[in-house]
Design a protein around this nucleic acid. Structure first.
Lengths: 142, 142
DNA sequence: TTTGCCCCTGACGTACGGGTCAGGGTTTAC
DNA sequence: GTAAACCCTGACCCGTACGTCAGGGGCAAA
């Protein structure tokens, strides 16, 4: 009675390949027909949407998989208590993700600033040659 | 008369594998002995250091390869005019890299903010359940 | 029943900067 | 002379979220 994978993918803005991928990683577990075809009912569709929302929030597939058993859709499309200690895979998946994002933002920002300070002004004279590389970037010297 | 790859790697804080990798991508071109062993003189060593500095600045191997013919070490360890139009591979390699970094920083920052706003306070009550997902994140609905 | 579209699994490709063998040749020190 | 330590190339490995075949089976309409 449910849709097959192509329709389910179209209904959720994904692809069949992505749905098989999520299933392989344990995010989904759609029932099969006798011949092995996947079947997607309203619950599976809702679950796919939730998974996609979590991924869009910046969580990785692994993060979501770690909390997969908490993704109870009977209560509607609300976020499960990722921040709570009961979450499988350890506490604070989202907090750790935020911390990781902050680390990455800081790293990229420092990188950009160093790069920007080693080069002439974007609108400056085209023939200007940048100065020496800052000592803080030096590689080990003999 | 020059060092072999192991010593060159040790002298520049890299590994033999990395030096072969740079060579494969066109960043280095050390001469060979009759038997095929790579030889690294002072110029090659200086070039390796420069390449590593550029990579540490956030440029990709491809970026550096695009300007490889401008990496003239006879003038010492100064940055070549990457920002100038004469650079092989198009103008403004560094500017494009900075722009790409800015894009990425913005993307990660927006991601972090959305993620942070969808979850309870980090120090808040552990059993608090987050509210519904913001509509702005909704996936296509039927 | 045939046509044609859909589905299945499995495997490889993508970008990045190398790490890590595997199998065999070279150089160096004793 | 020989053994240790080094070097060579080629090839597969990492992580992320899938895309893209390849080869074979299922399902509904005509």
């Amino acid at each position: 009675m449910g849709m097959r994978i192509g329709d389910a993918a179209a209904a959720t803005g994904t692809t069949p390949r992505a749905l098989r991928f999520y299933e392989q990683r344990g995010l989904l577990l759609p029932p099969r027909t006798a011949s092995g075809q996947r079947e997607y009912g309203p619950r599976e569709i809702a679950r796919i949407r939730l998974v996609r929302q979590l991924l869009a929030l910046g969580l990785t597939v692994e993060d979501v998989a770690g909390c997969a058993d908490r993704l109870d859709l009977l209560e509607g499309d609300t976020l499960p208590p990722y921040g709570s200690p009961g979450c499988t895979g350890g506490t604070g998946v989202v907090q750790r993700r935020i911390a990781a994002l902050n680390d990455e933002i800081g790293r990229l920002t420092r990188l950009r600033d160093r790069l920007a300070s080693s080069v002439p002004e974007p609108g400056g004279a085209p023939e200007t040659v940048a100065g020496p590389i800052p000592e803080t970037l030096a590689c080990p010297s003999p």
